[in-house]
Measured scan of single mutants.
Amino acid sequence: CHSECLGNCSQPDDPTKCVACRNFYLDGRCVETCPPPYYHFQDWRCVNFSFCQDLHHKCKNSRRQGCHQYVIHNNKCIPECPSGYTMNSSNLLCTPCLGPCPKVCHLLEGEKTIDSVTSAQELRGCTVINGSLIINIRGGNNLAAELEANLGLIEEISGYLKIRRSYALVSLSFFRKLRLIRGETLEIGNYSFYALDNQNLRQLWDWSKHNLTITQGKLFFHYNPKLCLSEIHKMEEVSGTKGRQERNDIALKTNGDQASCENELLKFSYIRTSFDKILLRWEPYWPPDFRDLLGFMLFYKEAPYQNVTEFDGQDACGSNSWTVVDIDPPLRSNDPKSQNHPGWLMRGLKPWTQYAIFVKTLVTFSDERRTYGAKSDIIYVQTDATNPSVPLDPISVSNSSSQIILKWKPPSDPNGNITHYLVFWERQAEDSELFELDYCLKGLKLPSRTWSPPFESEDSQKHNQSEYEDSAGECCSCPKTDSQILKELEESSFRKTFEDYLHNVVFVPRKT
């Protein structure tokens, strides 16, 4: 048989008469490798580009789960590009990614509803959504962080984005990388972005840091009482949809009607710091009717980097990364020049730590249904340095008659930039024990000054392991946590139920 035959053949030295091919099969003959313009397919066939392209389009058009959109890589027609490569849609070739590779997620039936953290986790790592997304989240724990972890990498949506009755959302900033909504599939009414009845939605994105392009379709905003109209108009300008909307697409009466839409800028007039305090004062603000001013709200939190936005980490279910302080308005003076500047002394802060701070007014709604208010920009203030805590785990070892090696770990709280350490030492008198000992005694162990690591005695271990207080009263049991108490109650309830079950099964009433 021919060298490319495997198993047997019907005619000697003829690659077209093989029972099976050793390498690849091409047009009725066995070959060692697939010549151009053919590609290896499933490690035994040679196919042309049209064959591989037909497989790709067949799966793409069917949208069946589990099928493969075949691509070409290293002269092979394979189910998908290997790690580190992405497909070129024009020629199906796998090309190296520039940075992290995109991950295209194809949605069944063309859309997916995100109504819980669990459903959001199914899209973790996706960068391109081939379909439409509907966000409908009523509640949950730590929602802002969970949504950002699972949806934060999405850069492109081919269909539309719909935010509907998501009472738990305060902001859409968890879509931190969303840059493009194509609108290839539109919501009824030709809408590519749809926001309806979101009672706590206050911000779409921080438009000073976020760009969003909507290729096709219109915007729809109705019944978002805490979303200011200025935020919607800003989205029109940034996304390129200005002029597409009709009169009733953006409701003037049901958007922002319960919001404090600040239209003035508060400026800080005085800032002073110490290692654990920050004193702030800002310019006074009074609405047209000074009785509408209820006070100020001061927001602050630790910020290692200057990239904080107002609604980071917030949701309507209680999660809030900001510390909020309510401040009463100052006494009002008739003389504008003698107006008191409101302020606040922030206490209990960490030394040498940068804080993000902003302040906003708290006002009631005027009778004319106009909203007044003022808010400052987010500023960054760093507390002063102070003395560091003591170095940890000092170790001293003498390696000769004239040297001592000293080692330690950095302090747990540096409280500033540590530039150097101060080492103090003092000579001590020799131990009298060394002169009084009889060095001729056998088995004498000389006193040693070398360091030995501390260890816990058996008594201390027994005390720590004991669940009861000892007789001397030195140790006591740790208080039980809520989960331990709940577990004990469940076990007790189970024992009672099981005992009742045994009584009912074992003891049967005697027939009379």
Rank of each mutant, 00 (worst) to 15 (best):
I157M: 10
G313I: 14
S119A: 02
T361D: 00
L180D: 13
D326G: 05
L280G: 00
G139Y: 03
N211T: 11
G140R: 10
A144L: 09
R165S: 15
P410H: 08
P391Q: 05
G110T: 05
A195S: 09
F299A: 13
N141T: 08
F175D: 00
W344Y: 03
P411S: 02
K301S: 05
G125S: 09
N399S: 12
P410S: 15
E237H: 12
D393F: 15
Q339V: 09
M297Q: 15
T213D: 14
R247Y: 06
D393S: 14
V128E: 00
S274A: 05
V363I: 15
L219V: 06
F221I: 15
F311I: 09
K350M: 10
G318K: 07
G373M: 03
V117Y: 02
I134P: 00
N320L: 12
S192G: 08
P329L: 06
E231M: 09
K177Y: 07
L279V: 13
V359T: 02
T386Y: 12
S269K: 07
P342K: 03
N150D: 06
L204G: 03
S119K: 02
Y285W: 05
W322S: 01
E310H: 15
Q354A: 08
K226L: 07
E237R: 04
C105Q: 00
E264S: 13
I135N: 00
G313C: 04
Q121F: 11
G295P: 11
L133Q: 00
L180N: 03
P287W: 03
N255R: 03
Q382P: 03
K277A: 13
H222E: 10
I357F: 01
A168R: 15
F193W: 05
T185H: 15
K209F: 09
P391A: 09
S402Y: 13
A316L: 11
W286S: 09
W205V: 03
L331H: 09
P394C: 14
L345H: 07
G159D: 01
I135G: 00
I134M: 06
T323V: 14
L161F: 04
N334S: 06
I271Y: 06
L252N: 12
I154L: 09
D384V: 14
A374E: 02
W207I: 06
A168T: 14
V128W: 14
V397G: 13
F299K: 14
S398I: 14
F290Y: 10
G373L: 03
R165L: 06
Y194M: 11
K337G: 08
H233D: 06
I404L: 01
V381M: 08
Y167S: 03
N340H: 12
E231L: 09
S171F: 09
Q199H: 04
G348Y: 02
H233Q: 09
A259S: 09
Q216A: 11
L201G: 00
P304A: 15
T361G: 12
A259I: 15
F268R: 00
R182F: 04
L186V: 05
G343K: 14
L229V: 15
T254Q: 15
R182I: 04
A259E: 05
L196W: 15
P388A: 06
E283L: 06
E262G: 07
I129N: 00
T273V: 15
T213W: 05
E109T: 15
E302H: 15
Q403H: 09
I181M: 03
I232P: 02
M235K: 00
E368N: 04
Y223V: 12
V117L: 10
R138C: 02
F358I: 06
E246Y: 09
M297R: 01
L196R: 09
I395R: 15
S333A: 05
N334T: 14
Q258I: 02
Q314R: 12
L151Y: 01
A259Q: 14
S333Q: 12
D249L: 15
L219I: 11
L204M: 14
D315I: 05
G159R: 02
G131V: 00
G295H: 10
E246N: 06
F220N: 06
Q258N: 02
L204D: 00
T213F: 09
D115P: 03
L331V: 12
D315Q: 15
S400E: 15
G256A: 05
T309L: 13
Q121L: 11
K103M: 04
Y223W: 09
L349W: 00
L172M: 13
L362Y: 14
G240S: 01
Q354N: 08
H341M: 06
S321A: 11
S333K: 13
P287S: 07
K103T: 04
S173A: 09
T386F: 14
L153D: 03
T353V: 07
H222I: 02
N255M: 07
R291H: 07
S173E: 11
Q314H: 04
Y160L: 03
T323D: 05
D377M: 09
A168V: 06
V170T: 10
V238I: 13
I379L: 08
E184W: 12
R369I: 14
G373E: 07
W286K: 08
S158P: 00
A145G: 06
S269A: 09
E187Y: 03
K409R: 09
D328K: 02
S171Q: 10
W322A: 07
V104R: 03
L180R: 09
I154Q: 00
S338F: 08
S192R: 01
W282D: 00
T215Y: 05
Q354M: 00
W207T: 12
G125V: 05
R291K: 08
V359P: 00
T113A: 07
V117F: 12
E302C: 10
L279E: 15
D276R: 01
K375Y: 07
K209D: 03
E156A: 05
R202P: 01
I135T: 01
N130A: 12
S269P: 01
P391M: 07
W322T: 02
E231T: 14
P329H: 03
D384N: 13
N190H: 08
A385L: 01
Y380I: 02
R369C: 07
G348P: 13
E264Q: 09
Y305H: 09
D115Y: 03
K253W: 15
L161K: 00
K375L: 12
D312L: 05
N200R: 09
V170M: 05
F220V: 04
L108I: 08
D249E: 15
T323K: 08
T361R: 04
Q382S: 15
D384A: 14
S401Y: 11
N320V: 04
E283K: 07
S192Y: 00
G140K: 03
V324T: 10
R202F: 08
Q306E: 03
A251T: 10
R291C: 09
I379G: 02
L180F: 12
F174Y: 14
N200K: 14
I135R: 02
F221N: 00
L219P: 04
C126I: 02
K301N: 13
R332M: 14
L331R: 10
S260E: 06
L180G: 06
F174I: 15
H341S: 12
T371N: 09
I154H: 00
R247I: 13
T118D: 06
L161D: 00
D367A: 04
L219Q: 02
V359Y: 02
L294C: 07
P394G: 06
K226A: 09
L147R: 01
M235F: 04
T113Y: 12
I163H: 01
L345S: 12
V324W: 13
I395L: 09
T273Q: 13
Y380F: 12
E231Y: 01
A120G: 13
E111S: 15
Y194G: 11
A144H: 12
R244M: 12
K350C: 13
L345W: 14
R347Y: 11
K267W: 07
R138D: 04
I163Y: 00
L294T: 07
S274M: 13
Q382I: 12
K253C: 11
I214N: 02
L345G: 05
L227I: 10
Y194F: 13
L201P: 00
N263H: 05
S401V: 10
N211Y: 08
N387Y: 03
L252K: 09
F174W: 06
E246V: 12
V104G: 03
F193G: 00
K267G: 04
I378S: 01
S400V: 09
H222V: 09
S208G: 14
P411N: 01
S400M: 05
P329Q: 15
Y305W: 13
N320R: 14
E246A: 07
S400T: 09
D289H: 06
L280T: 09
C261Y: 02
H341G: 14
N334P: 10
K234W: 07
L280I: 07
N340D: 14
D257R: 06
F275M: 14
K407V: 13
K209Q: 07
N334G: 12
N340K: 06
K218A: 12
D393A: 15
N141A: 15
T353N: 03
V397R: 07
V325I: 15
M297I: 04
I379F: 04
D315W: 05
S376K: 02
A259T: 11
L151F: 06
W207N: 03
S208L: 13
Y285P: 02
D393I: 11
L349R: 01
K234R: 12
E122W: 06
S239A: 11
A149C: 13
L180Y: 09
W286F: 05
E262S: 10
S389I: 02
P287E: 06
L196D: 05
K218P: 11
L266A: 01
A195I: 13
S376L: 00
I250P: 09
